[in-house]
Amino acid sequence: MHAMTQPVPASRPTSAVKTPADAADLYAEIFREQPVSLEVVSAGRLKQVGARPPVREYLAQLWSRRHFLWAEARAKVSSGTRETVLGQAWMIINPILNGLAYYLIFGLILDTRRDIDNFLGYLVIGVFLFQFTTQCVRGGARSIQTGRNLIRAFSFPRASLPISVVLRGVLNLVPTIAAMLLLIVTLPENETWTRAALLFPLVLALQTCLATGIALFFARLTTVLPDISQLISVGMRIWLYTSAVFFSIDRFEKFPWIVGLMEANPMYMVLDAARDCLLYATVPEASTWIGLTSWSLGALAFGFLFFWHGEESYGRA
């Protein structure tokens, strides 16, 4: 035995502060007179478990789990369609059918296309890209709850869970974008492709940053107050209708303050920039780029720090 045990006069609680728990601790009172053996351990060699590491170390830990994140996202993407007959083909069929359904409703039945060039393209880009954000935010908000089994089994940086949801969204987005481009090219509204289209991946990257930030933010918020998850679907619906997905912002020309508000909305910026690149062969304005970049990076930094700050609390969720 390597214990250097030595008798110590009386039991002293390790923390000086008396809590109500101590007062009610009858056993502690009864056995106060017992001999106490003192064990000394060095904090240099032993590290506190479950403690929140500093931001830089946390980022390094996340980076070292990148293989886990990737594997988990890939495994879950393919398991969603595993029990269907058509299997992975659904990942591309589904968005095409969706796009056609929206065209039927908003383009032909409700006829909202009056003042928009290439309405189908406009609609498809709006719907598909917005769907990605919705998926990330909803999945992110639930990620701690659905990942509870993993949380209780392994210790890993918990931000892996919402980030993995976003990764899954990105993997789902790949066939969706393919379907989107297919629809834009094949359907009867002619397109001119310019180099502006090359900027589209940049827009997507910024959108992904934005979605990650929001997903991290809500992931912690729902563990603090589970009621938030009930509000998220309502919130996302309101956001959908205020992001000019189905109609043009020109409808509100008479109310400049509404236009101003909508233009400050980061998802509107995403959709606007994507449409400029893909449909209207123009490079998005500098103001859009600046606004979108600051929204995305700001959301990512804020969401990450907010989530990191609660790192020690997720085990109880």
Binding site: R12, Q34, L38, E39, G44
Partner: peptide, 14 residues
């Protein structure tokens, strides 16, 4: 309970 020897852990910070 009466025969147990209480342990008090002291952590020495480097």
């Amino acid at each position: 309970f009466s025969e147990r020897e209480q342990t008090s852990v002291h952590v020495e910070e480097p």
